[in-house]
């Protein structure tokens, strides 16, 4: 078992895949917002990639272990300590009864926003519709369907021989992404782009603007600040706001929704449908960045990509997690 001593802004039990297959009843996939770091930390402790782990937003977190375990953390540049001694991220470390693993406070200089803590064998959690991921909209899955609180107790999973063999292993430096306060995400135009909704010029503008993350950011959406989109004049004059269309399924995660004149990035727990356009879609391999955007501070840019390129990049990213490729 392990007890939460401090739960920070929002600490959630999540997994990699979430619950796919229920978007048609309004249930988002959910799961790790930063799927890349979530994979890395599970990989390094010797877990299955879909094992449940903790997603911790904004640091200020502490957990006390009451049994032997193996853990690894990664993500935002907030220092992790074991019994007040700094420990390396992206490395599998053994913990023993009485050990306290903690994450410091987030600072204006912090790069990234969320950290992921993998624990050997994962943890017990409410498995709902095939996943342990917490759904913060609807309050199911995870730890009683909610964010962790101080004094919550996690029942840890069973440590395997594989987990034990991973103690001391690290993620190779080349596979650890460099965090910054500017996130360049590759994106594909569509489903609702030029010429029908936004002009060519307007799309050029979206792909060349530096947007700023607003304070209003959560697991369902990250609002961006930037210029007003350049709407197709025919649509703008059709009555109603040009961003409004007949309700449709949202390509999420990944879609870039336009609500009125505001762009909203769609992360893991975005709405599954609605009546607004999605002008472009962040490609799968870059969607992890949405989990690392520092609200109110970070800048976001979209870099043009084709569907074909995106699929090739996806193959490359999946290869990183095959066997022990990314470990040393």
């Amino acid at each position: 078992m392990a007890k939460i001593l401090s739960a920070g802004i929002q600490s959630l039990v999540e997994d990699l895949n979430g619950r796919a297959g229920y978007m048609d009843i309004g249930i988002a996939h959910s799961g790790f917002m930063d799927h890349y770091t979530g994979r890395l930390v599970n990989k390094v402790v010797g877990n299955e990639l879909n094992e449940a782990g903790l997603e911790i937003a904004g640091g200020n977190f502490a957990i006390e272990f009451e049994e032997d375990s193996i853990i690894a953390y990664g993500g935002a540049t907030i220092e992790g300590t074991l019994n007040d001694t700094p420990v390396e991220p992206y490395m599998a470390i053994a913990v023993h009864p009485g050990d306290v693993f903690a994450l410091g406070r987030i600072a204006p200089t912090t790069k990234g926003f969320r950290q992921y803590l993998a624990i050997a064998g994962g943890m017990e959690a409410e498995e709902y519709l095939g996943s342990k991921a917490t759904a913060t909209y609807g309050n199911f899955g995870g730890y009683q369907g909610r964010s962790l609180k101080k004094d919550d107790v996690l029942c840890l999973g069973t440590i395997t021989e594989k987990n034990k063999a991973h103690i001391g292993k690290k993620v190779k430096q080349e596979y650890i992404p460099e965090f910054s306060d500017t996130w360049v995400m590759r994106a594909i135009p569509g489903p609702d782009a030029a010429p029908d909704f936004i002009t060519e010029e307007g799309m050029e503008e979206i792909f060349s603007t530096e947007y700023k993350a607003q304070m209003f950011c959560d697991r369902s959406g990250l609002r961006l600040k930037g210029p007003k989109p350049i709407w197709n004049p025919e649509r703008a004059n059709a009555g109603g706001h040009p961003s409004n269309i007949t309700d449709h399924g949202y390509p999420g995660p990944g879609g870039v929704n336009i609500s009125g004149d505001t762009l909203i990035l769609f992360p893991a727990e975005c709405p599954t449908s609605g009546g607004l356009i999605c002008a472009l879609s962040v490609i799968y391999v870059d969607q992890w960045m949405m989990g690392q955007i520092f609200p109110g501070r970070d800048k976001i840019k979209f870099s043009y990509c084709t569907q074909r390129e995106a699929i090739a990049l996806r193959k490359e990213q999946m290869a990183i997690f095959e066997g022990e490729t990314c470990l040393e």
Partner: peptide, 21 residues
């Protein structure tokens, strides 16, 4: 319509504004 690298949206009609339907 392409919608990222994992989605396709098939739309019936031309997304006319609701006032025109």
């Amino acid at each position: 319509r392409q919608a990222g690298d994992g989605f396709i949206e098939v739309v019936y009609g031309n997304n006319e504004a609701s006032a025109n339907k």
